[in-house]
């Protein structure tokens, strides 16, 4: 393995940890708002780390551009959909979770 491979592995594993944490939060958090928090925050960072891990391996600048575009689009869609889901939940009168 060359040094860039180690960097890739480290980034991919870090990304996977974020995905794992996000999934755990989605399954374990008490209400829709806290679940959204876990999902969007963790998945955006997790996907970013995985994209970075793949960018290190990319063969051309065009591939780097496409990978980054995927991340930006997912960031945009994720944030917007999280907002829409939360707004829909508020409009239906789902209360915020309180201990």
């Amino acid at each position: 393995m060359i040094p860039s491979d180690y960097l890739s592995v480290a980034l991919l594993i870090a990304g996977a940890i974020f995905f794992l944490a996000g999934t755990l939060g989605l399954l374990r958090f008490p209400d829709v708002y806290t679940r959204l928090h876990a999902l969007t925050k963790a998945d955006n960072v997790g996907l970013g780390l995985i994209v970075m891990g793949l960018v290190v391996q990319a063969e051309s600048w065009a591939a780097v551009g496409k990978l980054l575009l995927i991340w930006v689009l997912v960031l945009l869609a994720g944030a917007s959909v999280a907002h829409l889901v939360a707004r829909g939940a508020l409009q239906r009168g789902i209360r915020l979770w309180k201990r």
Partner: peptide, 15 residues
């Protein structure tokens, strides 16, 4: 639709 969906659709359509 609200400002978020409106902006998102305007931004994403060219993409």
């Amino acid at each position: 639709p609200g400002p978020v969906l409106d902006t998102l659709s305007r931004f994403l359509t060219p993409v």
